[in-house]
Amino acid sequence: MLHVVPLGDAVEHEADDDCVCGPTLKPVAGADGFVVWIMIHHSLDGRETSEDDH
């Protein structure tokens, strides 16, 4: 499983599903049908809010 973690966030993220940010598990299928699971961690410094404004 791959983890996508925001850099320079307000907290240090744990590379597991118990991370304080409440990460989301997402399957991503390649062209060959092979599925890779990606754990997407959420920033806690509010950057998504400011990015949505652009």
Rank of each mutant, 00 (worst) to 15 (best):
H13W: 04
A15H: 04
R47Y: 07
H3L: 04
E12N: 09
E51M: 12
E12K: 12
V20A: 15
P6V: 02
I38S: 01
D9S: 03
A31S: 11
C21F: 03
T24L: 10
M39E: 11
E12D: 12
V4P: 00
I38P: 00
I38D: 00
G30Y: 05
V4E: 02
E51C: 13
W37I: 06
D32K: 03
P6C: 03
V11R: 02
I38T: 04
V28H: 11
D17M: 13
V20E: 15
S50V: 14
S43F: 12
H41E: 00
H13S: 01
V28I: 12
D16A: 00
H3I: 02
E51T: 11
E48M: 08
D9M: 05
E12L: 13
V11L: 06
H13Y: 05
T49E: 09
V4S: 00
D53A: 08
I40T: 05
V5C: 02
H42W: 07
F34L: 14
P6E: 01
C19S: 04
H54K: 12
I38G: 00
V4M: 04
D53P: 00
A31L: 09
A29F: 12
D52F: 15
E12Q: 11
H13G: 00
S43A: 15
C21E: 00
E14Y: 03
L44I: 04
H13K: 02
D53Q: 06
D53Y: 04
P6D: 01
E48L: 11
T49Y: 11
I40H: 14
M1E: 15
T49A: 13
E51G: 06
C19K: 03
T24S: 13
G30I: 07
V36R: 08
L25G: 07
E12S: 10
V35P: 05
P6H: 02
C19T: 04
V11D: 00
W37N: 14
L25M: 07
D45W: 07
M1W: 13
D18F: 14
D52G: 05
V4I: 06
V11A: 01
G33E: 09
D52H: 10
H3P: 01
K26P: 01
V4Y: 06
P6Y: 03
I40K: 11
V20W: 14
I38H: 03
G22A: 13
W37Q: 11
T24P: 02
S43L: 08
E12M: 12
G8K: 03
V28Y: 09
D52K: 13
V5L: 14
G46N: 14
H13A: 01
T49S: 13
D32L: 05
H13D: 00
P27R: 12
D52V: 10
P27L: 04
S50T: 15
E12H: 10
G33T: 13
M1T: 10
A31P: 10
D9H: 05
V36Y: 10
D9G: 02
T24I: 12
H42T: 08
L7R: 06
V20R: 14
H13F: 03
V28R: 09
